[in-house]
Amino acid sequence: MKPLQLLFQSSIGKKMIMGATGAAMFLFVIGHLVGNLQVFLPKEHINAYAHLLHASEGLLWIIRLSLVGIVGLHVWSAVTLNAQNNSARPSTYGAGTGPFGASWASQYMFMTGLVIAAFVVYHLLHYTVQLSAINFAGKDFSTLTVVGGPQNGWKDVHQMLVIGFGSPIVSLFYLVAIGLLCIHLSHGASAMFQSLGIAEGAWRTRLEALAKCVSIGIFLGYASIPIAIFLRIVS
């Protein structure tokens, strides 16, 4: 078999794909967070950041399509691996079993992943496609622009966030999804090192601890935005 074939067909190959795409998304999640935390700065900052992202539509689409590809591979490997896993244990234990010290997160990666995937779809429709029907604010986000000042006519992302997270339902779903993401990453962000053949010995323990800390950091970071908006710290 050719190496690419092996990569896509063998158990370890698929785990490597999952680990590598997971690592890429992990970096994206951190980058996305750093960008979004600018909401706490004067509103010009986040608007300027959004403007910069859109500076080259071509580049933006390349990035977007790459991200879609990465997500696709991650989901594909998850679905195929999960199907194999289920078929490998056709009958369950009468007395129940496990998890023998394994973390809750590691037991439910597929479930948390599914909810996160659903959220990502919603999140894209909400803020990227800007489908008014689902934003529970009754407002068309595409019409929000900055009026006056040096940024006159730019997209007003700051206002979009404030209005977007003004809806308690949206914020709640967001918080749940971020919570699940945190759980997903607390396992995934260290497991990916194993799948890629990196975490060994003391490094395993360190990376596991680091993954948990970073996941909590990511949760706090993302959660701070709707909470701050809800508490009118950001308006």
Partner: peptide, 30 residues
């Protein structure tokens, strides 16, 4: 099935073989 790095295997292993060997195997495979 496939490894999802839960660590249950090592926890019940009568000889306490640890997950590091799975990491090594993944690296060798790569």
């Amino acid at each position: 099935g496939n490894c999802t790095v839960t660590g249950s295997c090592a926890a019940v292993c009568p000889k306490e073989i640890n997950l590091d060997f799975i990491t090594r195997m993944n690296r060798d495979y790569l």
